[in-house]
Design a protein around this nucleic acid. Structure first.
Length: 422
RNA sequence: GGUGGGGUGGCUGAGCGGUUGAAAGCGGCAGUCUUGAAAACUGUUGUGGGGAUUUUCCCCACCCUGGGUUCGAAUCCCAGCCCCACCGCCA
């Protein structure tokens, strides 16, 4: 969320943001509520000041053994008025909060303005694989190699779930182990293994709630949610905390399964592994000082790119335009890996700078040493990287004419030194 | 799941319905002393919000959360959440 005070003082900038994001949002209600609330607050606080003063006087009268009764009865009416105004204030607060939560983050000045067509490919890496045969899709390959069993996953649970088997299961495990090792040993992240279930406060802290409740799996009896990404538990580690300036930047990486209902996306990417309800992902999360956050974003993207480069998967880096940018982000790069069988660029990572948007909501601060003032940290996160889609790219790009699949060099130590799955 | 105990500032820990935003200690910061350090001593030290004559001043709120009683609540009542201990169940 944005700071209501910031909105008040930068109303033109917020209007411009809404325009850039192509949203239909009326700010008048917000401005009006904010003004009414403050007018009421002044009135209420004056009354409370009077009450406090009177209470001191009553207290003094009692000490002098004088009769406080007249004073007390004169205060009764004021107290009732205060009670009434407090109820009204609460209504304004609730309303204002509701309205403020509908305001998205301000896009960074460096990103293109426009819809997804304006997204900008800032760089590409690797060469597209060439075949002297028609490359098969990951569905065909995994069936042939007996490493993924979708019909049985459907039987056990339902459609759009995956069951990895044999070398498929080992490949999955090899991938996230490789990624965690890379981020912890080479890129300096601290490994976290968080709970996969989180409470409502955590979901609200990172912004999944209240907006996206429909997209989440929820355990009704306990009011807990299956995490849609490790971003939720890991970012919420520091919810309502004040971090040491010296401890920043904080880098965390975590493997988790991710659960998404994908409500409303039926009919889109329903075949194969592209869009599933449960997938594995290694996530990177950063807590940084505001003045460093854009530099940190570039480093975050580089860390995610390193995974793809070491796996030898061609990819491109897509800087999202204002209308394609998620609600809480100021700037975001998507990494898209090429998959030869389906001949598509698949989004395997999304690296975002949220500036103080999440930190304000989750109340994550740090104290500056020189001024001793509290300030919100900037939070960033990025996939490093999402697995099911990476498996698609691996299978399709490394397939051979004989139907086998070559294993990239970096994964072999995790797979008993095996060179190919056949 | 059952029983008992408990949630107060950065930490430990007092707190009678009425100058208690909160004792005391520790820690932090500044100063005195010292060649320097330690010790000792002195002072200082929470957060959020609002107002104005906006580098300063004034006010309000906050003692787990939400209600209630009262002229007045950290203190009394109710509900919830969380923590600790023991018992039960359990990988």
């Amino acid at each position: 969320m944005l700071d209501p005070k910031f909105i008040r003082e930068n109303i033109d900038l917020v209007k411009e943001t809404i325009k850039k994001r192509n949203l239909k949002l009326d700010l008048n209600a917000l401005i009006k509520t904010d003004n009414s609330r403050r007018r009421l607050l002044v009135e209420l606080e004056e009354l409370r000041a009077r009450r406090n003063k009177a209470n001191d006087e009553i207290s003094a009268l009692l000490k002098e053994k004088k009769d406080p009764k007249p004073k007390i009865s004169s205060m009764k009416a004021i107290s009732e008025k205060i009670g009434a105004l407090e109820i009204k204030l609460k209504e304004f607060d609730t309303e204002l909060e509701k309205l403020v939560l509908t305001i998205p983050n301000i896009p960074h000045s460096s990103i293109p303005v426009g819809d997804a067509g304006c997204n900008k490919i800032v760089r590409s890496w690797g060469e597209l694989p060439k075949f002297d045969f028609k490359p098969a899709t990951h569905i065909e390959i995994s069936q042939h190699l007996d490493i993924i069993d979708l019909p049985r996953a459907t039987k056990i649970t339902g459609s759009n779930f995956i069951l990895f088997k044999g070398w498929g299961a080992k490949l999955e495990r090899a991938l996230f182990n490789f990624m965690l090792d890379l981020h912890t040993k080479k890129h300096g992240y601290t490994e976290i293994f968080p709970p996969f279930l989180v409470n409502r406060a955590s979901m609200t802290g990172t912004g999944q709630l209240p907006k996206l409740e429909e997209d989440m799996y929820r355990l009704k009896d306990d009011d807990l949610f299956l995490i849609p990404t490790a971003e939720v538990p890991v970012t919420n580690m520091h919810r309502d905390e004040v971090l040491d300036e010296d401890s920043l930047p904080v880098y965390y990486t975590a493997y988790t399964a991710c659960f998404r209902r994908e409500a409303g996306s039926y009919g889109k990417d329903t075949k194969g592994l592209t869009r599933v309800h449960q997938f594995d992902k290694v996530e990177m999360v950063k807590f940084v000082k505001p003045e460093t956050s854009y530099n940190e974003l570039e480093k975050l993207v580089a860390d995610a790119e390193d995974v793809l480069q070491l796996l030898g998967l061609p990819y491109r880096v897509n800087m999202l335009a204002s209308q394609d940018l998620s609600f809480a982000a100021s700037k975001c790069y998507d990494l898209e890996a090429y998959a030869a069988g389906v001949d598509k660029w698949l989004e395997v990572s999304s690296c975002s700078n949220f500036e103080a948007f999440q930190a304000r909501r989750a109340n994550i601060k740090f104290r500056r040493k020189n001024t001793k003032k509290l300030d919100f940290v900037h939070t960033l996160n990025g996939s490093g990287i999402a697995l099911a889609r990476t498996v698609i790219a691996l299978l399709e790009n490394y397939q051979q004419k004989d139907g086998s699949v070559v294993i990239p060099q970096v994964l072999r130590p995790y797979l008993d030194g095996k060179e190919r799955i056949s």
